[in-house]
Amino acid sequence: MEIKHSQFKRCDLLRVRGRLDSATAPILEEKLEEITEAGRFRLVLDLNEVDFISSKGWWVLINTQKKCKRFNRGEVLLVNVQPQIRDSLELVGMGKYFKIYDDVASAVGSF
């Protein structure tokens, strides 16, 4: 898994590449913890190059969403979620926990 992190004035952008399963979810979890521990809670995750997400991966994103939304201090926004990944997310009812955008500029601009 590769994560490219860019810090903007109003939010942080993470471009993730690869698969998000039990083997790799801890890598993303560590990166997200590093950002939230620095007091940054407005996050945009570009998943355009992510081709697989298991429930372990979703839990990393949901736990981060819980942390970010606490005290209305921020939010995790998802961008470019592949259709089959989005289907599985909706199937388990987790889709409602995230706003999903079709392009990075709109997501970043929403903060």
């Binding site: 429930s55 949901i62 969403q65 939304k69 599985s88 199937l91 987790m94 926990y97």
Partner: peptide, 24 residues
């Protein structure tokens, strides 16, 4: 079964894996 529909702060991971398997 997983707690589908629960508010974000109450949702817990239990049961999601098996539920996904059955649905897929």
């Amino acid at each position: 079964p997983p707690q589908i529909g629960k508010p974000l702060k109450e949702v817990k991971p239990r049961g999601v894996g098996l539920y996904l398997i059955k649905k897929m």
